[in-house]
């Protein structure tokens, strides 16, 4: 080793994330890890397994199920939780279910607010979690770039971007009053490329939807929507078409656009990603509403 040795890039990111997770486990009373089943969640779970080894995860895993996730996501979740003996909590906003909530009937904004944002708040309140890990990254979106790793939430789960706590070095202030909570983002400094590269390097299992395959899709408002079940009403003249597609992010199937692709392995995804010119969140309907929409949603309690 020379005197100029630095940890390799992913090693350094990994160590930082592990440090953050251990800090929460050591100092928070009742933490939880949000699990969205996506690739970032997969990386976060893998890092958590590393952080506490040989102990098991010292906190439960929470999935807020909107009931409109891709079927393959739910299968993956069940298999993953069983394999690692995780303490998995699945929460569904039953009030939303009673209202017959869905993106087709109520629109994407209302559906996301009720089933995702409100559902998350319900779950956090129900179990009294004082800290919740999320897999968000700073390179995803402009308001995320300014959010702290330990992000304070009021008792109403609100984020106040103007009064964030200064966050220096790797010394995190997670002290809160009763009812308040922390959202903790251990992947803050990872980029989309880092995530894929780490999945490749560590052989982390991912939902097969990330890989290209012939799938039934229809094109709506410039977005390729996969017909995942018979709840999707067809408009006149619409006919699902079998196309070679994959997904860059996973969420509610009617709100997640597919991209045409031939990448059937992780390494091909990385190649494709490096050679394309479209940023990741473009596939999500939710960000397009208004310029500052993510910031606004986050203030309201969205992850």
């Amino acid at each position: 080793m020379t005197s100029h040795t630095q940890l390799a890039h992913l090693q350094r990111l990994e160590a930082e994330s592990i440090h953050i997770m251990r800090e929460v486990a050591a100092t928070c009373e009742n933490p939880v890890m949000l699990y969205s089943i996506g690739k970032d969640s997969g990386v976060m779970m893998h890092l958590a397994l590393k952080a506490f080894y040989p102990s098991k995860l010292p906190f439960p895993i929470l999935h807020v199920d909107t009931t409109w996730k891709f079927r393959e996501m739910i299968e993956f979740r069940e298999k993953f939780a069983a394999e690692h003996q995780l303490d998995l909590i699945t929460h569904i906003n039953q009030e939303g279910v009673a209202m017959g909530m869905g993106p087709f009937s109520h629109g994407s904004a209302v559906h996301t607010d009720v089933m995702k944002t409100q559902g998350l708040k319900q779950a956090l309140d129900k179990y009294g979690f004082d800290a919740a890990f999320g897999g968000a990254r700073r390179d995803e979106e402009k308001s995320r770039a300014k959010e702290r790793i330990f992000s304070f939430r009021s008792a109403q789960h609100r984020w106040d971007p103007k009064s964030q706590r200064p966050e220096l070095w790797n010394i995190y202030n997670n002290r809160i009053q009763k009812g308040e909570s922390m959202r903790v983002f251990p992947l803050s400094n990872w980029t989309e490329l880092d995530i894929w590269q780490y999945i490749h390097q560590e052989n982390i299992p991912i939902v097969p939807l990330y890989l290209a395959k012939k799938r039934p899709v229809v094109e709506r408002d410039g977005m390729l929507v996969m017909v995942d079940d018979d709840r999707m009403p067809m408009k006149p003249g619409e006919e699902p078409e079998m196309k070679m597609v994959r997904f860059r992010t996973l969420g509610c199937y009617p709100l997640t656009g597919a991209v045409e692709s031939t990448a059937t392995t992780v390494i091909e995804i990385i190649q494709e990603m490096l050679l394309t010119k479209t940023s990741e969140r473009q596939g999500r309907a939710i960000d397009k509403d208004s310029n500052a929409s993510m910031e606004q949603k986050k203030q309201e309690g969205y992850f």
Partner: peptide
Amino acid sequence: LVDGLAAER
């Protein structure tokens, strides 16, 4: 590109 928060813009 970099001024992310609504107030900043």
